[in-house]
Nucleic acid binder design. Sequence first.
DNA 1: ATAACATATGAGCAGATGTTCATACGTTGA
DNA 2: TCAACGTATGAACATCTGCTCATATGTTAT
Lengths: 121, 121
Amino acid sequence: MIENEDLCQVKFVNQSTVGRLRKSLKDPQTIERLAEIFGVLADPTRLKICIFLSQAELCVCDLAAMLNISESAISHQLRLLRSLRLVKFRRDGKMAFYALDDAHVTALIKQGMEHAEERAK
Amino acid sequence: MIENEDLCQVKFVNQSTVGRLRKSLKDPQTIERLAEIFGVLADPTRLKICIFLSQAELCVCDLAAMLNISESAISHQLRLLRSLRLVKFRRDGKMAFYALDDAHVTALIKQGMEHAEERAK
DNA sequence: ATAACATATGAGCAGATGTTCATACGTTGA
DNA sequence: TCAACGTATGAACATCTGCTCATATGTTAT
């Protein structure tokens, strides 16, 4: 018996299953990045921003108006999205236009929507 | 000009686009639920729990051992997953066996993994 | 130049979140 | 009946998070 200290004494789930699953888990960095992406979409404000930016290129003040939130708050969120390279942006004079730059995010939102819509809760 | 107070004066994005996007946004409850699911997967511990439970039925102590975390912490997280009806569980004597009970979550993890794995960052 | 404007950013704050610790509950075997 | 065990849960705590407010930066028009 190896590495068995923490496993409960009565074992129904066979040990090989536990060992197999343990090994199949991706490395910590990948898990971290995965959690990170989900974290981006876990905030309603940021989620809405991503939804909008997946459909059109928009400026900060448009987003602020659409979400009924301060431009500062939007700018902070966009800064986060920029740091994760999830959006691309383009300056045109005073304005800054943002758009989503990660197809996976769009796919995640679409996928998640199926879950969200089928729940009356 | 209707509902134009907050939109910036210089408009390049035409107003109809903003209006159209605004209307296309799902209702607040759906957005909330969507953000909620992503929130579940936004924590590394909970994410790993979901990954494991999508592959096998496991008890609390197995999860605790696999994730190298206290059984209490696992139990708290499982409580959350239960409240969101994302897991089903079955008692057998002293043990409690959990398994994932939402196919969408599995799909989300799979989808997200594609994003996470293609980033060296 | 300077005023108005769109955006960016740092500090600070309130609320949310995840873990630990102590303890309780229900089951099993002696 | 009682001790050991697996699990559950409430409270407390430290950390994280998202917003606001004040202020800064860069651009445009006068």
